[in-house]
Nucleic acid binder design. Sequence first.
DNA 1: CCGGATCCCCAGGGATACTG
DNA 2: CAGTATCCCTGGGGATCCGG
Lengths: 218, 218
Amino acid sequence: MRSYGQYCSIARALDLVGDRWTLLLVRELLLRGPSRYTDLKNGLPGVAANLLATRLRELEQMGLVRREDAPPPVATQVYELTEDGAALEPVLKALGLWGMRYMNEEHAGDAFQASWLAYVPAWFTNDADPAGPPAAIQLVADDEHAVIELGDGSVRARAGRTDHPDLTLVGPARAVLGVLLAKIDLQRARALGLTVKGRRDLLGRLRPAKGLSEAPRP
Amino acid sequence: MRSYGQYCSIARALDLVGDRWTLLLVRELLLRGPSRYTDLKNGLPGVAANLLATRLRELEQMGLVRREDAPPPVATQVYELTEDGAALEPVLKALGLWGMRYMNEEHAGDAFQASWLAYVPAWFTNDADPAGPPAAIQLVADDEHAVIELGDGSVRARAGRTDHPDLTLVGPARAVLGVLLAKIDLQRARALGLTVKGRRDLLGRLRPAKGLSEAPRP
DNA sequence: CCGGATCCCCAGGGATACTG
DNA sequence: CAGTATCCCTGGGGATCCGG
């Protein structure tokens, strides 16, 4: 990218990661951990192959990404974030938090992945009952599966499934996320196609982070 | 900008503000408040006139910027952030904080402005002695003037000058910012051309925010 | 199948000139 | 002062191809 030519830390940051696809690539590396080229390509639907290779090369040269040989089972290379690269997490959190206000409308044809389902509760909710017992919530949105695990005072989430969840939410992504962040109530979520099974009181333990509760928008 | 086509709040955010110059334009509106077109153009050295006009139109249509008639003295229009636009402040702070690690090197020819000098202490330092008496620090870097005001437990900063500062720092931007954030000591700063006059103990009241102190880099 | 490299084409951005 | 108009050029999208 052309430099903005400004001695300003915001401009400097954008000089490095302001290019198209760059921050989404960092998102993938942050959410998935060390990843192969093909996994990244799958995680970034729409990216051109050459562009992904170029970005990875640039990020490596800037010192934000490291290329390493994968551990024994696989014989290929993996890409992972360096310390400087991982330090972008607050940037992605801030962007993601701000962007939540535009998640009310689902645009037809938008891609969706389990890891994007998982980071929302993990990043943007707290446990309102930190001393409460462990619990697991199974999320299923557009056939993507994620699990929220409550306990030890934290809200953790990951892509995948769990046996014996205490609560299961199945429905369109918009409804699942809306309910998790208390932006829409169960009544409206059901109208959007949400199915709820299990201990719905657990939803009360998910307290939306500041900057979200502002006011549900039309 | 082309949409990324992903149902992910980070991608959504970048759909709106990921375009070139957009976040820097928001930075200007945030730091300067309601601004005229020409002020924005001056605050964004290097931007093409047509691009600035396009971005303002796009941001207005997205609901991030509002165009209004200026109060009586001037007969022109001003642009200002809406609530949604101003909510980008945490994003700019996160980006700016991350970018500080690349401010050690000044690139020849980089533009520099007083408002960019001011936001660094205002955003990235706290008063280590919140109950301490009011004090003012005059900053002069590359002929740009800014003032830090301590008192009432907060660190405020603005472009401009003050009479009777308690401390005055004059020198290249890199040295002034480095000293403010405790990334370089006075000894080294002086070697870089910094001049210090007044109560240098006041520097001890500026406590760098988390995410900065990590370790000065070469 | 993985990890790219190559090629073509178009939209978005840069520089400058011009206008109400 | 507040933009438009124009031209040029680069960066990115999309498809295909290629070596391991």
